[in-house]
Design a protein around this nucleic acid. Structure first.
Lengths: 133, 133
DNA sequence: CTACGAACTAGAGCCGCCTCTAGGTCAAGA
DNA sequence: TCTTGACCTAGAGGCGGCTCTAGTTCGTAG
């Protein structure tokens, strides 16, 4: 049961939506800000902070930040104070990429919506004819 | 030189931004609405319509539609009139996915922007201190 | 002639990101 | 005692989407 603050890998999987496989993979990839503590039998014991960190990583991944870049960011955080400017650079760069991504996506959406409109009108007109006869 | 309407694979690559490899790959995957005509020596000859179609496919891909689904859509178009409702379904479904994607992306962007703000303030305050001394 | 550039085919290879397997430990419950 | 289930490690495997290789065939330019 791990005491009130400790979470098993399964519980973290539930809470984050990641698979236990993915959690171990992320750890191996150096994507955890603080080394995961081990309980009896060598089992991982996560804290709420780990879960919070993972949730942020999930946001970064979802928005397309590659694993190696998340690792670089994580390493800076692990190193501690003094590199805030570098962290800021990574975040700003990513922010810009996400903005561009959204613009692109909006263009795609406009095209799709345009085509949906055309097909919808066509399908409606066919249906109207069928009723008319 | 291919006559005024015919384009070589290289020209289409230039015009679409796809690689010639990708163009052959897309064709093999059944992602061309009309069979590509072949010129002397078995070389592909594309029309402007092919380019237009490819540009739409690129939009679908960019917005995350998987190749197999683009193929299904393409097949419907190849079959000709009568299946507009099915085409509409595919487009609407994708439209919805893109919308959700944008919402997600906006959430990510909000988080990132929030963090950028925090780091920016911090970095500014450090800079201010340095000036003050 | 020869040599270049651009095209061709079939199929292998690569990258990113997990996902799964094999073989094992351990604790609690029937 | 035996089984079940959650966990462990190391490493193989899979998937989507290209990308590249090998070995040719052309047509034009030097």
């Amino acid at each position: 049961m791990l005491g009130r603050m400790g979470l098993s890998i399964g519980q973290v999987a539930e809470r984050t939506g990641l698979s236990v496989h993915a959690l171990r993979f992320y750890e191996k990839e150096g994507i955890l800000a603080h080394q995961v503590h081990r309980g009896p039998g060598g089992r991982r014991v996560y804290t709420q902070q780990d879960v919070d960190w993972l949730r942020m990583c999930i946001m970064l991944r979802m928005s397309g930040m590659p694993v190696p870049e998340i690792r670089r960011y994580t390493e800076l955080v692990r190193q501690g104070d003094g590199n805030e400017l570098q962290r800021l650079d990574i975040l700003k760069e990513h922010q810009e990429r996400v903005r561009q991504q959204m613009v692109q996506l909006q263009d795609c959406l406009d095209l799709i919506t345009h085509k949906v409109g055309i097909y919808q009108d066509y399908v409606n007109s066919i249906a109207a004819k069928a009723v008319g006869q």
